[in-house]
Simulated scan of single mutants.
Amino acid sequence: MIKIVCKNVISGFLAVLITILVSGTIQTWAANPNLDGNSHPTRLTVNECIADVKEITDWDEKKVLDAARKICESRQSHAKQKARFLASLKKLGEQNYRRFDEHLPTAIEDSWTIVKSCIDFKEGFTSPHNVAVLSVPENVRSSCYSLGASLVESAPLIKRSE
């Protein structure tokens, strides 16, 4: 009895999921993969940054505070550039040009691939130590999201003629 109920629930869930995917109700710019890795773009307060610095160093308070401020700035930049990238994808998704419609999902997927490849490339050439383990991932993501946003923003937006 329990097996049948579980099987029906799973089958129903899969049917709903497939229906959503086929109908295209999930916006493509909302398909936001988690590229945060070792970064923490949501830990933005000075107290959170201080706690993170203290976790990996035994510095005096002034040095901790200076490092924490820089890390918070890096995290804020990361969050700002990620928001810019997402906004540019949303604007692209709202593009109203018939001949572009069929290419939109691929363009958005490729945009995410570019950002991910940028992150992988940059992190492949970095080996941070000490407090840099907190700032490098943020700086990498900030620059890669900025690159992605610039590429998407450079796409010509043409209004559909009716």
Rank of each mutant, 00 (worst) to 15 (best):
V5P: 01
I10Q: 04
I10A: 08
G12R: 05
F13V: 05
L14A: 07
V16R: 04
I18Q: 02
T19A: 14
G24W: 07
T25P: 00
T25M: 13
I26P: 08
Q27E: 12
T28C: 07
T28K: 15
W29A: 09
W29C: 06
A31L: 15
N32D: 13
P33C: 03
P33L: 08
P33Q: 05
S39T: 05
S39V: 00
L44G: 01
T45N: 06
E48D: 09
C49T: 14
A51E: 12
V53R: 01
K54D: 11
E55T: 12
I56T: 02
I56Y: 00
D58R: 13
D60R: 11
V64E: 00
A67F: 02
A68R: 02
A68C: 02
A68Q: 02
C72V: 03
E73C: 06
E73H: 08
Q76G: 02
S77M: 12
H78P: 01
F85S: 02
L86A: 10
S88P: 00
K90E: 15
G93M: 07
G93E: 14
N96W: 07
Y97D: 09
Y97G: 06
Y97M: 08
D101F: 11
D101S: 08
D101N: 10
D101G: 04
D101C: 09
E102Y: 14
H103V: 12
A107T: 15
A107F: 13
D110T: 14
I114P: 07
K116W: 01
I119D: 05
D120Y: 07
T126S: 12
S127P: 05
P128V: 05
A132N: 15
V133G: 04
V133Y: 04
N139Y: 05
R141L: 00
L147M: 06
A149S: 08
L151H: 03
V152Q: 01
E153A: 03
S154E: 03
L157P: 00
I158P: 01
K159F: 08
R160N: 09
S161T: 13
E162D: 10
E162N: 10
